[in-house]
């Protein structure tokens, strides 16, 4: 069978025919967002290369969901308290969020009671990769901004949902808990961290009683330093009000475009 040369007079099938920054009119807009804007079209749908790129990103996200949290990868100084939820493995964790919100009996017995202003919990959530990469620098930045706060030993929680922090902090005797938890991986970022701050934590707290700082990562997200600064502001506000949640509004000026307070439900880690 012989191949005929391409017909160079026919109109292009793909539009725009190239995403070369020199000729692509979408190039300037593409630099403003990670969103898939200006995708080349084939008729009403997208060009085949875009379909494959999407499928590869989805395959990577699926891989990230199943990865375990490695405590040695956190390289933390000082005492660390490892705990596990009642979800024994990743597959159970994904189907049974109720088990991910409860401490295993062993873990509950191991938490020493003290008197602390705040407890930090590093939790895998739905991306252990996020906890491993983002939590240590955020924690270090927070410590620097919280002089005078009595901080509990760091807890590292496996197969954990957000509400697990309530039980952990209650048992530790902490007046506030900050869950540093891996968000559900997206297509473009699979290592994004959220902070959930809950004042006076105890089992039974509602999502509306938490404040969330999300999208902490190195791919154009919130930096560790900025996240820590926000958290310090929230902690000060919560201490003043005596509570956290929707009553505690972020009223910082809108000059910087990287505000992060989301409803607790939105990162899928409850």
């Amino acid at each position: 069978m012989t191949r005929s040369p391409p017909d160079r007079t026919a109109p292009p099938i793909i539009d725009p025919p190239s995403t070369d920054p020199e000729t692509d009119p979408w190039a300037p807009l593409r630099g403003l967002t990670r969103a898939r804007v200006g995708q080349p079209r084939a008729g009403d749908t997208v060009a085949g290369g875009e379909v494959l790129a999407f499928q590869l990103a989805h395959a990577r996200a699926r891989r990230a969901v199943m990865a375990p949290l490695r405590q040695q990868a956190l390289a933390l100084d000082g005492p660390v308290l490892p705990v596990c939820s009642q979800a024994a493995d990743r597959a159970t964790f994904i189907r049974r969020p109720d088990l991910g919100r409860r401490l295993s009996a062993d873990s509950a017995a191991r938490l020493p009671r003290g008197r602390y202003d705040v407890a930090f919990v590093i939790a895998d959530g739905l991306s252990a990769l996020a906890a491993e990469r983002q939590a240590p620098p955020v924690l270090a930045a927070c410590r620097a901004l919280l002089p005078g706060w009595r901080i509990a030993p760091v807890v590292v929680a496996h197969n954990a949902r957000v509400a697990l922090g309530d039980d952990i902090a209650h048992r530790l005797g902490a007046g506030c808990v900050v869950m540093m938890i891996g968000e559900r991986p997206g297509l473009s970022v699979s290592d994004s961290l959220s902070l959930y701050m809950t004042w006076d934590p105890r089992p039974g707290r509602l999502d509306s009683e938490r404040n969330c700082i999300s999208n902490i990562h190195d791919h154009g997200g919130l930096s560790a330093e900025a996240a820590a600064a926000r958290l310090a502001g929230l902690l000060a506000g919560a201490r003043r009000l005596g509570r956290s949640g929707i009553a505690l509004k972020d009223e910082t000026p809108a000059s910087e475009p990287d505000r992060k307070w989301g409803l607790a439900r939105e990162s899928g880690t409850q």
């Binding site: 999300s214 509004k249 972020d250 009223e251 000026p253 809108a254 475009p257 992060k260 307070w261 989301g262």
Partner: peptide, 9 residues
């Protein structure tokens, strides 16, 4: 859907 709960933003 805003990432932030900030009224001014």
């Amino acid at each position: 859907n805003p990432a932030t709960d900030n009224v001014a933003h």
